[in-house]
Amino acid sequence: MDRICYDINMATISSENPTRTINITDPSHILRIIRKIVLYILLILAVAWSVLPLFWVFVSSIKPDSETYAFEQTILPQHPTLQNYVTLFKVTRFGLWMRNSAVLSTGTTVVVIALSAMAAYAMSRFRYRSFEWLGRLTLLAYMMPPIILVVPIFFVLFKFGLTNTLMGLLLVYTGIRLPVGLWMLRSYFQGIPIELEEAAMVDGATRFQAFRKVILPQALPGMISTGIFVFSVTWQEFLFASILIFNSQKQTLSAGVATFLSEDWIYSWGVLMAAAVMISLPLVLLYIFLQRYLVAGWGSGAVKG
């Protein structure tokens, strides 16, 4: 901020009277300073546009109702409180939903990564014609809109009595996230030199041992970024949960909180904002601490997808 103010002062002085400042005699210099100021203003605007709504959600979650519903609102809370969070966890089923979502996301991530690491390895190492088709099938499955799949999947699960069970939802999540896991990991495994496992096999390891002891450690960063991706999309999944689960106790975060919105207005905005913060928090923490993996994952999932 200081730097910008300084630049602005320089610019105003110099544009009023260019000869007064010694180092700014050249008009291109003034232009350059003006350009810098404009760039910094734009930078601040871009950051504000990205984070101000979230900032507003956060401060509203720690304001007491008397401030949120006041006629004259202040930006920062005058009497910050955690009351909204207490209400959220004590009065609503939010804690239960959070547990369900955590179990589902963790389970899905572990199974998807395990299965797709194996398949991705096989697909990147053995060049059978049928595996090429599997690759195409994976891409097709990856592109398939979930909304197209949800009705048929609902009826299949219904037939097997798996609707309204977390087990059924876990199965569905594993199935619909597998293509993206497979797709991201396959390109990752392709980048690991085949010589590594050949060396291990010359030393007497079986192929599976080579895979487990040599290739998997190499692929760890890719598996972490894919895992974070799968975890975060499952954590916030709404469509399948809202359709396959009809029982509030078994609901997940997104679908559970969505019932707050369709029901009659029971909870205050402060409580809803606390819910918003709690749903986002794990993802934000993952982003802050594992940014390196996450950004790499977004890139690879996207470019090669």
Binding site: M118, A122, L134, M144, L149, P152, G175, L178, P179, L182
Partner: peptide, 21 residues
């Protein structure tokens, strides 16, 4: 080994994407 590694994924993709489509 390759077939064994691929089969679970293939089944899941068929059941949850291709078949519903």
């Amino acid at each position: 080994l390759a077939v064994m590694m691929v089969t679970p994924s293939l089944i899941l993709i068929l059941v949850f994407a291709i078949f519903p489509m």
